[in-house]
C-alpha cells in the first residue's frame, strides 16, 4: 500500500504505525506522530493500523522562536 509520510508518497507493508516508524528509520527517536491530522500518542502507535492513503506526520524537535 501507499501512504504519504511527511509529505512524500512511500510504499510500505507495515501493518501498524509503530512498524512503519521502525521501517523508515524512526525507531527509538524522539518524535511525535499524527495520522490524517490527528495526534497519535506514542503509546497507541502499536495499536494504530496503517491504511492505504494515510497521511502520516512524524515530527521532531526543531529550532523555533
Amino acid at each position: 500500500m501507499r501512504v504519504v509520510l511527511n509529505g512524500e508518497a512511500v510504499e510500505t507493508d507495515a501493518a501498524t504505525l509503530e512498524a512503519l516508524l521502525e521501517a523508515r528509520g524512526f525507531g527509538g527517536k524522539t518524535v511525535a506522530t499524527a495520522v490524517n491530522g490527528d495526534f497519535v500518542p506514542a503509546g497507541l502507535r502499536g495499536a494504530t493500523q496503517v491504511q492505504d492513503g494515510d497521511r502520516v506526520e512524524v515530527l521532531a524537535p526543531m529550532q523555533g522562536g
Binding site: 511527511n6 527517536k29 515530527l59 521532531a60 524537535p61 526543531m62 523555533g64
Partner: peptide, 19 residues
C-alpha cells in the same frame, strides 16, 4: 528556550540534545 516541531529530517535529535 522556545522550540518548535517540524518534520524529522535527521537534525532533530541532535538539536534536542543541545537544548
Amino acid at each position: 528556550a522556545t522550540v518548535s516541531l517540524r518534520r524529522e529530517q535527521g537534525a532533530g535529535q541532535d538539536f534536542w540534545q543541545l537544548i
